[in-house]
């Protein structure tokens, strides 16, 4: 791990997030409708964006693993799923806290919230599956299959829930947002991206080390039978 990733990136993360949140909390004007509560946007929206990015990385890693097996893509898939679940859960918590003063409820069955809840449950299942399979190769293949199916499911869930509710969530596009809100949002988003990279790098290294330890396990265990030991070492090599 080079020095920039180890020290520079965390420092950059702290600087960007600190600056973005300071801008958002102190510098940006309060929203016309939502007042001060709108400042939740500078933590909620970057969290959601980064959760989506992590889930996308997870999907790409899963597809890549099925095409060409490698512990690196498997470790990447594991890292992105866990970090994505963290960011997505936080995004959902901040979203429902935001919903309380603006909509009057913590939860509404609108398509976006519902789809995200389903997505988070799917990724929890994915991580549970990874825990419950001991064989590292089978675990990698199966979790890749589950990740791909889960990702395919997302648009279907979105459409079906939208039909089910038949109401449309109003999205704010950058044009309707005050430029004094765009800057803090951008800075916070880049800070959150840096944080995502920091978390992913460390989680990836943990996963890779675990994989290597698992694959090397038969060799490391002391065996009495010399023939068994020979066969194990030949299999690993």
């Amino acid at each position: 791990m080079n020095k920039f990733v180890k020290f520079g990136l965390p420092a950059l993360t702290l600087a960007l997030l600190g600056a973005g949140w300071w801008l958002g909390l102190a510098w940006a004007p309060p929203d016309r409708e939502m007042g001060e509560v709108q400042r939740i946007m500078y933590v909620h929206v970057p969290l959601q964006w980064m959760a989506m990015m992590a889930m996308f990385i997870n999907f790409v890693a899963a597809v890549t693993y099925l095409m060409r097996q490698s512990w690196k893509t498997d470790a990447m898939a594991e890292a992105s799923a866990e970090v994505g679940l963290l960011f997505g859960t936080l995004g959902m918590i901040t979203g429902s806290i935001w919903g309380r003063p603006t909509w009057g409820v913590y939860w509404s069955w609108d398509p976006r919230l519902t789809s995200e809840a389903i997505l988070l449950v799917s990724y929890t299942g994915y991580l549970v599956l990874r825990r419950f399979v001991e064989d590292p190769e089978k675990r990698a293949v199966w979790s890749a299959v589950v990740a791909i199916i889960g990702a395919i499911n997302l648009p279907i869930v979105w459409f079906s829930v939208r039909w089910w509710r038949s109401l449309h969530q109003v999205q704010s596009s950058p044009k309707t947002v005050d430029p004094q809100m765009v800057l803090p949002l951008r800075v916070s988003a880049f800070g959150m991206l840096a944080l995502l990279i920091v978390f992913m790098v460390h989680r990836y290294r943990i996963a890779l080390a675990e994989r290597k330890a698992e694959v090397a396990l038969p060799e490391a265990l002391p065996t009495d039978d010399p023939a068994l030991r020979a066969s194990h070492s030949s299999k690993v090599a």
Partner: peptide, 28 residues
């Protein structure tokens, strides 16, 4: 009608996120 106040909600969001990040870093 503009929402008045509500800083409590804002601080709760930022606090929860920062706490979760710190905890996750510790677990890493």
């Amino acid at each position: 009608g503009r929402l008045q106040g509500g800083w409590g909600y804002v601080w709760a969001c930022y606090g929860i996120s920062v706490a979760a990040f710190v905890l996750y870093s510790a677990s890493l």
